[in-house]
Design a protein around this nucleic acid. Sequence first.
DNA 1: GTTCGTTTCGCAAGCGCTTGCGTTAATCTT
DNA 2: AAGATTAACGCAAGCGCTTGCGAAACGAAC
Lengths: 348, 348
Amino acid sequence: MSSTVDAVAERANVSVSTVSRALRDMPGVSQATRKRVQRIAQELGYVPSLAGSRLATGRTGAIAIVTPNLSKWFFGQVLASAGRVLRQAGFDVLLYELADTAARERFFAGSSLAGRADGVLVIALQPTPEELATLEAQNLPLAFLGSGTPGRSGVRVDDHAAGRAAARHLINLGHERIAFVGIREAADSTLGGVPPANRLKGYREALAEAGLEPNQDLEVHEENSTAGGSRAMARLLCAEVAPTAVFVASDEMAFGVLHTLKTGGIDVPGDMSVIGFDNHELSEILGLTTMDHSVALQGSETARRLLALITPDAGAEPDLVLSGQLVVRGTTAPPLPLRGRRTVTPPA
Amino acid sequence: MSSTVDAVAERANVSVSTVSRALRDMPGVSQATRKRVQRIAQELGYVPSLAGSRLATGRTGAIAIVTPNLSKWFFGQVLASAGRVLRQAGFDVLLYELADTAARERFFAGSSLAGRADGVLVIALQPTPEELATLEAQNLPLAFLGSGTPGRSGVRVDDHAAGRAAARHLINLGHERIAFVGIREAADSTLGGVPPANRLKGYREALAEAGLEPNQDLEVHEENSTAGGSRAMARLLCAEVAPTAVFVASDEMAFGVLHTLKTGGIDVPGDMSVIGFDNHELSEILGLTTMDHSVALQGSETARRLLALITPDAGAEPDLVLSGQLVVRGTTAPPLPLRGRRTVTPPA
DNA sequence: GTTCGTTTCGCAAGCGCTTGCGTTAATCTT
DNA sequence: AAGATTAACGCAAGCGCTTGCGAAACGAAC
């Protein structure tokens, strides 16, 4: 079953080098012998030993994807789309989930990837300068998804603008007391919270532009989960003056927000408008207004860029910056007192 | 950066064999030289070439996980939990997502895994006899998750019993017209629908036991997604006599069912009881009554079993059959006419 | 001081593949 | 028709590691 080049060579009356060249469509083999060798290899069920060729060429034919917390929706989507592109291109995908700081440290401690992968796709985790250094030390092509590191190849979304747009939507509806629910990283979190931070910036900027006073009480941060969202909303309900709208930095948290609101008997969007961020699979069902940021596209495009870095022929593609896209559904509306006279401020 | 054994050997004034043995804690090296070699290796930042040792030993230090459709919640959960166990044990994880039949055929066509992995973890896809044969031909240890193949190592849940229990719950509440929403596989699906089929069997059995007449109109099958669930419920609402309760074979579909019900103005659980299957992350928020089947545990236990097959010392663990566990939340209640006199039939 | 176990270690033969270079044989030049 | 290209292929030296086996060294036992 697992025959070697020698077996094929002997059977075909050629040298192993010819077999090697024939099978990989390299020049220096006549059409006739190439065909013959290929046929015989087929007959013998020959499949080249990866280990052998790795050792000889130094190329592994695999690319590593490193990501935090696979169980979150976002990462699953991204992993799936990136993986497809990679496999399509003939690469194996090696998965590294850095779920906790221990795993993260272990990963970055040594040159874990030497001889294991031809490139690394880093999803949504913000390496520290030291970590980046050790990564680069293994000098493998790198591509980043959602990383704040500028200049490195990859794709990210303009969270600042998207956050601003989300807030603006609420402002345009006439809201004046707009809360923000952000992502607080768990103590053991491995991802750098740059995108969420930028969403917050965008939110603040939009408020400032609209002449609305910033209010610390209306900015709360919780763990990125439905439970976190629930808690966040509960806290907001204790604010001195409750908001009439809330911008939530992730759809999963928004689900929790909606839940708290519902059990609290607060009508959405009657008493409270809610806008999420992600366009999660279930947002449609729940009628959640949200910012879409082409999650699957982020994955596939990052993969494509990494491939461009690896295969010499393909020209290097520039970094991609995706922009968010408002998806209007049922959880946003003008605040109650304004209902009916819907004054929409035209964008500046 | 990437020094070789020879470098270490020379620096430590020993032979490469000693280095090799010292670094891997093999006998035949004195404590003194072992320490010295390890220290020097450390200093030189030596990290053994995987390719080299693979070639020499035949062991790859990686295990392959093959799964359909990563973007579904279930697979993400399972992959995460299995992956953690595997990485913990020092294995790399190689990910094969067989999203469509083309990918599946490509995967099973050749001995794709020869020299790539030391074992294979097959998640939720039911290999045909031929596929199983090609898998075995590569003679790697195999472990299956959720596969109906008996006798093979792995874990599965007793979907039959769990389905029966779910239906029984509805029966015990007093329902007599109970529908079933099953999973219809897409044309391009890669997973074998054995578990869903068993849930259906359990449902039928429970009905039969309770003396309820089977009714084909109340069994509908749709794609496993929220949209599919929506459609399924819509179809049920067209039945000659509408059901008062519905057992949905997956939580994601149940979300769709709830949505249709809500937009249709049908009160849950007032007019219709709904029970799902999975205990999806979001089910709690939605208050969905469901059958939990320890998804994460399935992943980790399958991984553990695979490891037992690989490492010679560990005794082979028997197959694991998990049972479902009813999680009662807010979407099930006695049918309206019975409300208040809640006659619960004691289990047989 | 021999003789016998033990350790401790080095030698060298692989593992299966790739590739630079040299050797033929075939095809062109003029 | 002799020399110069070029195409087709084989040789053999790696790639970096592991491991069976023999050699040396070292104590212990007689």
